[in-house]
Amino acid sequence: MNSNHLFYAALGLAGACAMGAGMVTAGGPGLAFGFCAYLTLGGAAICIWERSIVRSAFSLMGTFVGVAGLFVLLGSDFLAMAQILIYVGGILALLLFGVMLTPPDNNERSLARVGATTVMIGAGVAFVVAQISGGVAGWVMADQLPEPNSQARAIGLAFLDPKQYVVAFELAAYLLTVALVAAVYIARRRRADFEPEPETPGGQS
């Protein structure tokens, strides 16, 4: 029974509690919410915990899919699709490239460090959330709201409407182009990299 076992046991327990609590309070939708929230937070927790960076990266997939599920529950199926496509299909692949292109020997993890950080930040965020939760409590339940509609078409039109977001949309397009070019520029290998290094008398490099 090492710390790894303990962690995964606690994680499984937390998942059961989350789904159970959701079902008790709100039935079917509650169960779905509990599952998605568990997927999201659990993925993040494994990402932090796991020694292997490859596993960390893959556990992030859980987080992204969980967030997509939350979007579905919030009635934004377009966002869910975008989330899956871009995060899981694009960004995650990009991060895996990063994992592959850097040396694998930097995966040590200090339990004390993780624990201390978790306590500090968890306490801070919990405190802030507790203080502002009073303002949120008055909002109605999601199932009391009118049935959500997809509005994917409306979002598309809004992006191309000169009175709404077309400028921002175009700017985002430019941003992506510039980012792509800049990424290529920064990561490119210079000519000097291909030439053998001149040998110095001291042998240092």
Binding site: T40, L41, A44, A45, C47, I48, I53, S56, A57, L60, T63, V67, L95, G98, V99, T102, N106, N107, E108, R109, S110, R113, V114, T117, T118, I121, G122, G124, V125, A126, V128, V129
Partner: peptide
């Protein structure tokens, strides 16, 4: 909020720069 806190923990506690990205 929890996801935010986990993100911060991830940035601060791990010793690989890729974790910062995560």
């Amino acid at each position: 909020a929890a996801l935010f806190a986990l993100g911060l923990i991830c940035i601060i506690s791990r010793r690989n720069i890729l974790y910062v990205l995560f």
